[in-house]
């Protein structure tokens, strides 16, 4: 598949702060590529550079082979940007908002009317299309916010945390719309700090923190970086050194993240198993207040990569 978006060594420095530190990735046609990271990780700054709102300090952004620096108008024509905040005209109706946005991208007359009607139906606002947006619920505004980024049928859609602050039902609706849009042949760059969304939606994703991509790949591929097996999490009155030493004596037990009083260990498939591993730790004289055994997820990977939880 041809890359729709290529980001090369992108860097943004604000004074002493390096918000984005040389990230590189590609997004292929028809793919949902996720940017997973906590607030302040550099996701929105990256999106802002990709859509031409911020000039990169260094690096290059190419959309379908066209550089944003060289031909910003042509690149912007191919992008649909859905910002994190709900940016709609509250005084206008949903239809008027979409009419306006389509007009900006040069859609006119019957084509615009048809496209607006299609979108209103797609985002489930056709019944309330002519009401002022100020009367809408948060979820409805979010759906309109998304529709406004789709009105000109862009090649690449940049979705910056499109589900922030809405209820689970409204979130599912938005995720369904995104899947539908991709099924129609569009490409999506999706930033989020909700790992469930990233796992559910993204074909590939990058884990980003402090402006750097820490890991990149498919969801399964990233989970595999933790190793195959079960994740054993223990809490109790022990030191990091004592747990590390005890784990080293147990066959097939790999430390993932260990601190005083808390430890995360991977029990590999094909080894002696979880009960054997626990016996080994007990026999080393350790006692635990809490033991948890589960399948590894992206949260665990983030913890392993950064030493902190995704929502910290």
């Amino acid at each position: 598949m041809a890359p729709v978006l290529e980001v090369r060594a992108l860097r943004k420095v604000f004074g002493d702060l390096t918000a984005v530190d040389g990230i590189s990735f590609t997004v292929n046609e028809g793919e949902i590529y996720g940017f997973l990271g906590p607030n302040g990780a550099g996701k929105t700054t990256s999106i802002s550079m990709i859509c031409g709102l911020l000039d990169p300090t260094e690096g290059e952004v190419l959309v379908q082979g066209i550089g944003i620096r060289e031909n910003p108008r042509e690149v912007k024509r191919r992008l649909g940007v859905v910002p994190q905040e709900v940016a709609v005209y509250e005084e206008l109706s949903a239809r008027q908002n979409l009419d306006f946005w389509g007009g900006i991208f040069g859609l006119r007359g019957g084509i615009l009317k048809k496209r607006v009607a299609e979108l209103l139906e797609q985002v489930g606002l056709e019944d309330r299309a002519d009401e002022p947006v100020k009367n809408f619920s948060g979820g409805m505004k979010r759906r309109l916010n998304l529709a406004m980024g789709l009105v000109h049928d862009p090649q690449l859609i940049l979705l910056d945390e499109p589900t922030v602050g809405i209820d689970p039902q409204a979130r599912h609706k938005i995720l369904d719309i995104v899947k539908e849009v991709v099924a129609q042949g569009r490409t999506v760059l999706y930033t989020t700090h909700y790992l469930e969304e990233a796992e559910d939606l993204c074909d590939r994703l990058a884990v980003i923190d402090h402006g750097r991509i820490l890991a990149e790949g498919t969801v399964d591929g990233l989970k595999a970086q933790l190793g195959e097996g079960s994740l054993l999490t223990v809490q109790g009155q022990f030191t990091a050194a004592s747990l590390t030493a005890a784990a080293a004596r147990v066959e097939g037990l790999q430390p993932v993240e260990i601190a005083d009083g808390r430890g995360m260990l991977m029990v590999g498939n094909g080894g002696p198993g979880v009960s054997h591993s626990l016996e080994g730790l007990f026999s080393a004289g350790l006692t635990f207040d809490d033991i948890n055994i589960k399948e590894p997820n992206l949260e665990d990977l983030f913890l392993k990569l950064t030493g902190r939880e995704l929502r910290d």
Binding site: G52, L53, R73, V81, V88, Y89, F105
Partner: peptide
């Protein structure tokens, strides 16, 4: 909205 307009051609 201004930011959004700035991201258009």
């Amino acid at each position: 909205m201004l930011r959004r307009q700035a991201a258009t051609p």
